[in-house]
Write a protein that binds this DNA or RNA. Structure first.
Lengths: 256, 256
DNA sequence: CGGGCGTTTGAAGGATGTCAATGATAGTGG
DNA sequence: CCACTATCATTGACATCCTTCAAACGCCCG
């Protein structure tokens, strides 16, 4: 796996994420404490950060790369119940078991805390707990949105919705791929297998959908992991959603 | 719709839920404030408590009955993304729009607050905000679990999982239907249509699944809304889940 | 008794999963 | 530098589950 385009340089003094995400707006004192207790960790694609059923003892913020939250049925079927992109908070506070595994879907850099330390900090700082609440609320919104995708949309619609979700996240997270209209591109940071597990379908069905979007001129292909959006309106229509659903929402945590 | 079995008598002085759910363990002072600002509301099945896209200005706790959280696609397809049972906290704090509609799935009694009042209370009481965080974390767990059901389980499995979910909730919420083994019964508090919307399928498919479970002696039928569990082990197996998944979990909010 | 609603049952068609084969790409070791 | 292999993406043929459409059934209530 090649080096990630947007990998930020990481200084020796620890991680510098404390200017973003949950730390925005916290009193300087707490930010300092967070910094003191944080551990910068670098994972390779496939690394297991936390396995299902195992004690959930890690909390963290994604700095770079993608983590997948996955549930596995006893017979091996797997469903990805969440993707953690840069700035997302992961880990299950206030519970010993989370029932989801956390795995690096790509090479990833995270700023981690031990859960007990983080919880102690939250206890001391209601402001921090507030930020965590906002983050969890955002995650819940995304989960409910995805339940709708899984529950009542076709595979084609799911693929389109997924691409638009990636687009929205990359735009707002500042990976601005805002080139001239018609040549906007979407980078798919995860494998087809993970995509299938997230979309509740198979790699074959995904392939058929994407190829259909290519044939109809909605998308262009720059590589298996990168598509060009040739016809955004058509992609929106293919997603079966209202257009503004993919443009309005912003994470509450970013503006609260 | 006939009167609900477990409808609690509601005194004229307001709602008495303040001994349960999010209020457990709060300082007396805050509980008093909650009581002061709460409004007891009684809804009939079908009443809309909050429509999609509308400003989310209500927060509350379900006292009795069932609320459904629903998302609607522009072409009319609907997905229920959550069922709120007694003790559940509903409403979207810290956001003006929630993008889900909240409807009474049955006749229901709730203890409601205006969102702004509730948020002000949370600001004054970190303990309250902590309880809300625990409630939202629970909701997220349920949502992620349901994503797995929708994403990679058959209709039969979904039906079985749903019945087991209802069973778990009614046991732990104290509606003890713990009669002698083999005659335990499950009350389905919502219509087949809502069940289909929650399970991401159709009423016809649900009917076929339930009828199949009846024919194979796993379930008995006491009425369209009430089944008897004749073979719990078989039902667990039909759900495609591990047995302990439906017996272990308890809401964190209950014990935190 | 009759109409309306919710549920069940049946038949047919479609979307998607499964299985298998081919093609593309990258990394490895000779 | 190049074959070799492993992995991933694509494509095709087929099977299956599920939805859709339609009709019958039961039940409550007027």
């Amino acid at each position: 796996m090649k080096a990630r385009k947007h990998l930020r340089s990481v200084g020796p003094r620890g991680c510098e994420f404390h200017d973003c995400s949950i730390c925005k707006g916290l009193p300087q004192e707490i930010r300092g404490e967070l910094e003191r207790y944080s551990h910068l960790k670098i994972y390779s694609a496939g690394d297991i950060i936390q396995s299902e059923e195992e004690d959930a003892d890690t909390v963290g913020v994604v700095i770079d790369g993608v983590l997948k939250l996955e549930k596995t049925l006893y017979d091996g079927r797997q469903q990805i119940v969440g993707l953690m992109l840069p700035t997302d908070l992961f880990g299950r506070v206030f519970a010993h078991t989370s029932n989801v595994s956390i795995t690096a879907a790509t090479d990833a850099t995270v700023c981690g805390f031990s859960r007990s330390t983080f919880e102690a900090l939250m206890k001391r700082s209601p402001e921090l707990e507030h930020q965590v609440l906002l983050a969890v609320l955002d995650e819940l919104d995304v989960a409910q949105d995805w339940m709708t995708v899984l529950g009542c949309q076709t595979v084609m619609e799911r693929v389109a919705a997924f691409l638009l979700y990636l687009r929205r996240r990359s735009v707002f997270d500042g990976e601005s791929s805002a080139e001239r209209p018609g040549m906007e591109s979407i980078n798919i940071p995860i494998s087809r297998k993970d995509m299938a597990a997230y979309l509740g379908t198979t790699i074959e069905s995904i392939s058929r959908s994407t190829q259909s979007l290519l044939r109809t001129g909605v998308l262009g292909m720059k590589g298996p992991q990168e598509f060009a959006i040739l016809d955004l309106a058509a992609l929106l229509k293919a997603s079966g959603r209202d257009a503004h659903e993919f443009t309005n929402h912003q994470k509450t945590i970013g503006r609260a």
